[in-house]
Design a protein around this nucleic acid. Structure first.
Lengths: 183, 183
DNA sequence: TCTGCATTTCAGAAATTTCTGAAATCACTG
DNA sequence: CAGTGATTTCAGAAATTTCTGAAATGCAGA
C-alpha cells in the first residue's frame, strides 16, 4: 500500500506532533493514517504504508485501543483485524477529552484529596494552596461532566453563539442569583 | 532548604505526572515547589530542595519561563533571581490553556490550511476529512477565544450554572434562530 | 577595568522511551 | 488435532530525552 502525497504529509505531521500530544510518533502516524483512509486497514497495510515493523504496528494499535480511539472491524471471509476511526468527529473529540481527563487530571485530583485527608500538617500556606487547587479542579471537572451530557446539537449551538455568551450568563445569573459567587 | 512531608509528596506527584503533561520530571517538581511555597525561591534553594543539579534547575526555570508559568521577583539588596507562581489560580489556568493551544493545536491548524491550499489532490475522502477536521478545530478555537475574553467572575458563573446550561442554550437558540446549524 | 557572585551554556553521561526481529501464542480450518 | 496464518510478546538495539559538571558568560560594585 502506497500513500498519496497528501496522505503522506498529513501522516508525517501527526507523527511529529505526537510527542507534544503525549503519544509517540508511530501512534500518531497510525492514527492519522486511519483517520484519512476511507476504508478500514489491517495491520499489514499499516506496516507497509508507514514503513515500520509489524510489531511496532501491533503495539501502536494496542495503545490506540487503550485510548478507545479506534474501532475494530471484520470483513467476511478474512480473519485479519481491520481498523478505523469513528466517522463522527465529535465522537473522537469526546473520547480524546475523556481519556486525557482520566490520565492527566483524575490522578492529581485523587492525590490532592489524599493529601487533605492526611490532616493538618502545620504548613498553612501549602494546605490552603492544595485546597484551592482541588476546588478549582472540581469546578472544572463538574462543568466538564455537564458538557459531556449535552448532545452534539446543543454543544454546537453553544460554541457558535458568538459574542452572546457573556450576555447569556448575565441573564442566567439574574434568574438564579443564588448561584452567583460572592467575593 | 528542607521540605515538609506534605510539600515533599506534592512535589513528587507533580514530578511523576510531568511526563503525562508533556513536561519533564524536574520541570514538574520545580513548578510544584514554587506553587506551594509562600515565598519566592531562588535557584539555589530550589536546587537544594529537590536534590538536582544547579544547571538542571536553570534549564527547568527557563522552560517554565517559556511557558509564562513563573514570575520573576527581586529582593532589595540581593541580586539573585527569585521565582513564584501567580497567586491567582485562574491566571495559571488561562496561561496553561493558552500555551497548550499554541503548542498542540495551532501548528496543526496551520498545517491543515496549508494542505487545503495545495488544492485538489484527487483523494476526495482525505480532502473531506481534512476540511472537516479544520472546521471543527476552528469552531473550538473560536469558542475558546470567546471564553478567553470573559472575566473570571463570569466564567465561574458559567461553570457553576449546574444543569441549567442546556436550557439556557435552548433559550438562546430560540432568540437567535439564525445561529442554529441545520443538518 | 578588575573581582566576585549569579546564571547560562554545552558536551558528554545517564536514564528513558521507542522500535525491531525472533519466538511464542492464539485461533481458525481442514 | 495438525497446520497455517494472524497477532502479541519480549529482550535487546537504537534513538531520544534528561541530567550533570565544568567552563563560559553576564553583570554589579570596588
Amino acid at each position: 500500500m502506497t500513500l498519496t502525497p497528501l496522505q503522506q504529509e498529513f501522516v508525517l505531521h501527526f507523527g511529529e506532533m505526537g510527542s507534544r500530544w503525549g503519544i509517540n510518533r508511530t501512534v500518531g502516524q497510525i492514527y492519522a493514517l486511519l483517520f484519512i483512509s476511507s476504508q478500514p486497514l489491517n495491520a499489514e497495510a499499516i506496516t507497509e504504508a508507514l514503513g515500520i515493523s509489524r510489531s511496532n504496528t501491533s503495539m501502536g494499535l494496542k495503545e490506540l485501543q487503550s485510548w478507545n480511539l479506534v474501532r475494530l472491524k471484520h470483513l467476511p471471509g478474512d480473519r485479519r483485524d481491520y481498523f478505523t476511526t469513528p466517522d463522527d468527529l465529535w465522537d473522537i473529540v469526546r473520547t480524546l477529552v475523556a481519556e486525557r481527563k482520566k490520565r492527566e487530571i483524575d490522578p492529581t485530583l485523587t492525590k490532592l484529596r489524599e493529601l487533605e485527608l492526611q490532616g493538618p500538617a502545620g504548613d498553612d500556606y501549602a494546605e490552603a494552596r492544595i485546597a484551592e487547587l482541588r476546588e478549582m479542579i472540581e469546578m472544572m471537572t463538574g462543568f466538564y461532566a455537564e458538557m459531556e451530557r449535552l448532545e452534539t446539537e446543543r454543544l454546537v449551538q453553544l460554541m457558535t453563539l458568538g459574542g452572546r455568551v457573556a450576555g447569556l450568563i448575565d441573564k442566567a445569573a439574574g434568574l438564579f442569583p443564588a448561584l452567583t459567587k460572592r467575593s
